[in-house]
Nucleic acid binder design. Structure first.
Length: 976
RNA sequence: GCCGGUGUGGCGGAACUGGCAGACGCGACGGAUUCAAAAUCCGUUUCCCGGCAACGGGAGUGUGGGUUCGAAUCCCUCCACCGGCACCA
């Protein structure tokens, strides 16, 4: 083989790596494990094995992590670099339904195909660690983790999860009592100290019936059943998580309508972890933008909970507000239509109107609501509440602009200082009272916007505002000094917002009417799905309502074989959900345990479950005793800093797309924290460092009906394939019909996918790897451009010719000394490539290697001193050609663990340097001075330069700025 | 509407911590080689003005301003595109 022949080289080395288990990562205790090396865990977000396989967008991240893995091995790390498949879930099931095959069969086929594709890319995974979330040996432990959640509760006092039996013990021993609303009351808590016996209004656990006890305990579990309003999608035959529903109120997958309806479902208490999920973002090195997305999703807000008593009614309405300082301006209240008090407080006269409104609100999907452009609607309940600070009797309304799921589902409306309330008050002619003084600028801005206010001076505006804020046309939502805010007891007048908030909250606390409170947007995680292709719950239901976990030694609960695994889809939103497992054989559904008959839970877990902990399984994928051996988990998840201290960083580098910013990453962190609290894992966070790769985008084409056509079939007017045409303003055609060119993320839905196989066939995977890395910064999205691939391919060909004489097939490498300049260039290249590796700027690393390679063109021979480091520098990015050359250079097969080249800093030092000379910041000449010249000498040299002297034209140099080894700047007075 | 990101030649992009803008690649143009083509090799390629040329002058990193001896880089204004959230009290 004389010419560069990627096909031969690549298949040979891939076979070799597989045969030699070159990339096997031994665990502590395994043969070949070297305890002296530090560890590095580099992980990809594992793919979903879809029927169409990979397109060139998938490997972008995989190639990057592979380069890091290979680089770290050469740097002397034990590298864990695994790959697996996230194979449960809707798409696999739908694919199976469409093709009439069992999802297990299609999933296995898809996995086989994707594995083949991945192996062709020469990725250095430890394939012995590969698994799919659908393997019973894996989901056994997914079920086990679910049981950990089921068997735990969140103790707010210690701020972490504890085994549920500890709660039972505390209740049994009267360390805790049960309050009137089922809350846990500690006799040692403030206010109860020193008082013996049961606190007022509380009950003892031992005095409850067994059923009450069970219900109480169940209500504290991290996994619990609740009747909640869920997103029911009849067309898919399943309920969906909030995250799986679009803003338009349709299913993310399939775009079917979604309806709200109450159902009994498994929930996971992620809200208990809201604060820690937020706070611990400080522990991880993630892109700020992703942290921000998570913070927004968690949606923490600080405020005050306030009780409003009712006029002529024993009920009280509890509201949450972030602006307690505006309490004096609360002129009415609004309940969400679904609020539990609505029916109880509505007066007979208003009942009909309220019922009608409730019905209408329930039937309204998000689409309808947004279509209204947020027009405020609502109905008066006929009831009145009492504003606790000033005793005003204020009307209670219901309106759908108040959401059930947030806060208490009820608000105090302060129309003067909340735009939504202002609009509502204006629509229904409710009173508006100003209690915060806006700043001057706002008055000025309003005065120019509102006709009735034009020409008024500031004092008149203020006076006007105090009398009638409605005239100003909008609410002032900012901060300011309090006004109109005093009662006999306390006053917020003239207090700035922050202080007013504190004072009124304190006052409310003293009166027993409220307290400071933190609210989160985050809701508990709806965990049931009415699907077949998911993990079965390890849960049994007794006929008496008992919920019982499947004993650990009976895990996994395997999916039953079923002929018909289709969900029961329907167009009727009122169809009750019927999980496919309800049609499973009776032998599966009915279980006898300790002489008692149970029915299995028939729902399955959502797709996110399997991906919540796969990174842990990779540390010890074949362990049958534990989800991962303690030692293996600790070894790969903990590391040590240079000073020897323990770093609980988890996965050292996790690479994947931004689309998982909130869902997968939040769920996985939640599970991890539960496992951490229960002592099963060693780190508080799973992923110490996260990196988001950009998308590969590509052109796609739509015909005049807006139907997308396959991009590879589109041609221009000359009949050339559209993919090879780059110019703007070209007309394109598909089967003779004109089509429009658009631009978007590569994928199946846009019909613009290009498979990596295609590129590998044409150029080899080293070229594909280089090209994907050379396209630009890893974290940016970029356009797939076939035409540019040739550039990196030429680089590899040229590299080959620099090493190998194509005529004779002989190596050009010799043992003589290289010229000094070349040696310097090499060391400079080592430095550049090393820096680039550390910052994952692989495009820059490749550019540096191309430069070095270009300097070798047209030389008859190549010195070993240059050749060997060069091959090593290239090897993480183009490993096949590097291995081939390394072997031809006379080395033992793999360079996978060869030491990374070091550069000699002395080689980067030049004896003399060329400096640009600027005059007033513009380059006017160049001088060459010794590298160690001092400022004076450099200044003198600059002044002596002919061109500089000419440009100076006799002007006096007022100042000379010398930056060593960079430039000289002479400051002179401006000419003329 | 709110939050975040990005904006550099014909194209993808480079530029340490404020210090020579346009590395490297694509494309284009010119040349060598070739019967010819492909491949390969050499050269030119930000724009404008002057010059046969070597070269000289000016402008220039989305817009306008500011800080600085010096700004792609820092600050403010606006614009465009991309992404997230969206009645969250």
């Amino acid at each position: 083989m004389n010419k560069y022949d990627p096909a031969t080289i690549e298949s040979r080395w891939q076979a070799r790596w597989e045969q030699d288990r070159t990339f096997k990562a031994p665990n502590p205790g395994d043969p070949g494990f070297d305890p002296d090396k530090p560890k590095f865990y580099v992980l990809d977000m594992f793919p979903y094995p879809s029927g169409v396989g990979l397109h060139v967008g998938h490997p972008l991240g995989y190639i990057a992590t592979d380069i890091v893995a290979r680089y770290k091995r050469m740097r002397g790390f034990n590298v864990l670099h695994p790959m697996g498949y996230d194979a449960f879930g809707l798409p696999a099931e739908q694919f199976a339904v469409e093709h009439g095959v069992h999802p297990r069969v299609t999933t296995e086929q898809n996995i086989a195909n994707m594995t083949r594709q991945l192996k062709r890319l020469g990725l250095s995974y430890d394939w012995d660690r590969c698994f799919a979330t659908t393997d019973p040996g894996y989901y056994k432990w997914t079920q086990w983790i679910f049981l950990q959640l089921y068997g735990a509760w969140f103790d707010p006092a210690s701020d972490h999860a504890r085994p549920i039996h500890e709660l039972i013990a505390d209740l049994d021993n009267d360390n805790l009592y049960i309050g009137p609303d089922g809350e846990l009351v500690s006799p040692y808590a403030e206010g109860f100290e020193g008082i013996g016996g049961v606190p007022a209004g509380c009950r003892r656990y031992c005095e409850m019936t067994r059923r009450e006890q069970r219900e109480l305990i169940d209500s504290y579990r991290l996994a619990y059943i609740d009747e909640v309003a869920v997103n029911w999608c009849p067309a898919l035959g399943t309920v969906l998580a909030n995250e799986e529903v679009t803003n338009e109120g349709r299913s993310e997958r399939g775009n079917y309508p979604v309806y709200q309806r109450p159902l009994r479902q498994w929930m996971l208490r992620i809200t208990a972890y809201a604060e820690r999920l937020l706070r611990d973002l400080d522990l991880v090195k993630w892109p700020e933008s992703i942290k921000l997305l998570q913070r927004n999703w968690i949606g923490r807000s600080e405020g005050t909970e306030v009780q409003f008593s009712m006029d002529h009614s024993p009920h009280a309405i509890e509201v949450f507000t972030t602006r307690p300082d505006t309490l004096f301006g609360a002129t009415y209240m609004v309940l969400a239509p679904e609020h539990r008090l609505v029916d109880r407080i509505t007066t007979p006269q208003q009942r009909e109107a309220v019922d009608a409104y409730k019905k209408q609100a329930a039937g309204r999907t998000e689409v309808d609501r947004t279509a209204d452009a947020r027009k405020k609607t609502g109905v008066f309940t006929g009831a009145y509440a009492i504003n606790p600070v000033n005793g005003w009797k204020i009307p209670v309304w219901i309106a759908d602009y108040v959401l059930t799921g947030y806060g208490t589902g009820a608000i105090m409306a302060v129309p003067a200082h909340d735009q939504r309330d202002f609009e509502f008050a204006t629509t229904f002619d409710l009173p508006i009272v100003a209690v915060v003084e806006p700043p001057e600028e706002w008055f000025e801005q309003r005065a120019s916007a509102v006709e009735a206010l034009q020409g008024l001076d500031l004092d008149s505006l203020r006076k006007r505002y105090a009398e009638n804020p409605a005239v100003f046309g909008q609410a002032w939502e900012g901060e300011g000094y309090g006004m109109n805010s005093a009662n006999a007891d306390t006053s917020l007048d003239a207090l700035p917002t922050e202080r007013a908030k504190r004072r009124i909250t304190q006052w409310l606390e003293e009166q027993g009417l409220g307290r400071g409170q933190v609210q989160y947007k985050l809701r508990d995680w709806l965990f049931s799905r009415q699907r077949y292709w998911g993990e079965p719950f390890p849960i049994l239901h007794g006929e008496d309502g008992e919920v019982r976990p499947v004993p650990e030694d009976q895990l996994p609960v395997e999916l039953p074989d079923m002929e018909d695994f289709r969900p029961e889809a329907s167009d009727d939103p009122d169809t009750p959900p019927r999980p496919p497992l309800s049609r499973a054989p009776q032998s599966w559904r009915i279980v006898e345990l300790d002489g008692k008959r149970y029915t299995r839970e028939l729902n399955t877990m959502p797709q996110w479950a399997g991906s919540c902990w796969y990174y842990l399984r990779f540390t010890d994928p074949n362990n049958e005793q534990r989800f991962a051996g303690r030692q293996a988990e600790r070894y790969w998840m903990l590391s040590h800093r240079a000073d020897g201290t323990e770093h609980r960083g988890g996965v050292d580098l996790y690479v994947g797309g931004v689309e998982h910013a909130v869902l997968h990453l939040l769920y996985a962190r939640f599970w991890h924290k539960v496992l951490y609290d229960l002592g099963h894992v060693a780190t508080p966070e799973p992923f110490g460092r996260l990196f988001n790769q950009g998308y590969i985008q590509a052109y796609y084409y739509e015909d005049d009906r807006g139907v997308r056509v396959p991009a590879e079939e589109v041609v221009d007017a000359q009949g050339r394939p559209a993919m090879e045409v780059q110019d703007e303003d070209v007309e394109f055609f598909h089967e003779g019909r004109p089509v429009r060119r658009l631009y978007g993320k590569m994928g199946k839905s846009l019909k613009n996918a290009i498979t990596p196989d295609h590129i590998c066939d044409q150029y080899g995977c080293d070229t594909l790897r280089l090209y994907e890395m050379y396209m630009g910064p890893l974290d940016q999205s970029k356009l797939w451009n076939v035409r540019d691939i040739i550039g990196v391919h030429r680089f590899l060909q040229r590299l080959w010719r620099n090493f190998v004489n194509e005529q004779t097939g002989e190596l050009r490498v010799v043992d003589s000394e290289p010229p000094e300049a070349l040696r310097r260039l090499l060391h400079h290249t080592i430095q550049r490539v090393t820096t680039a590796m550390n910052t994952m700027a692989f495009n820059v690393a490749i550019a540096a290697l191309i430069e070095l390679n270009n300097a070798l063109v047209n030389r008859e021979t190549l010195e070993r001193e240059i050749a060997e480091p060069m091959v090593l520098l290239l090897s993480p990015m183009a490993p096949h050609v590097a291995e081939e050359l390394w072997q031809r250079l006379g080395h033992e097969p793999s360079l996978a663990c060869a030491p990374w080249p070091e550069y000699d800093p002395a080689m980067l030092e030049q004896e003399s340097v060329e400096l640009p000379v600027q005059i007033n910041g513009k380059v006017r000449g160049r001088i060459r001075v010794p590298a160690d010249a001092d400022d004076k000498a450099i200044e003198q040299a600059a002044m002596n330069d002919e061109k500089v002297a000419a440009s100076l034209n006799g002007r006096e140099v007022k100042k000379c700025i010398v930056i060593r080894k960079r430039m000289v700047n002479l400051v002179v007075p401006e000419d003329g």
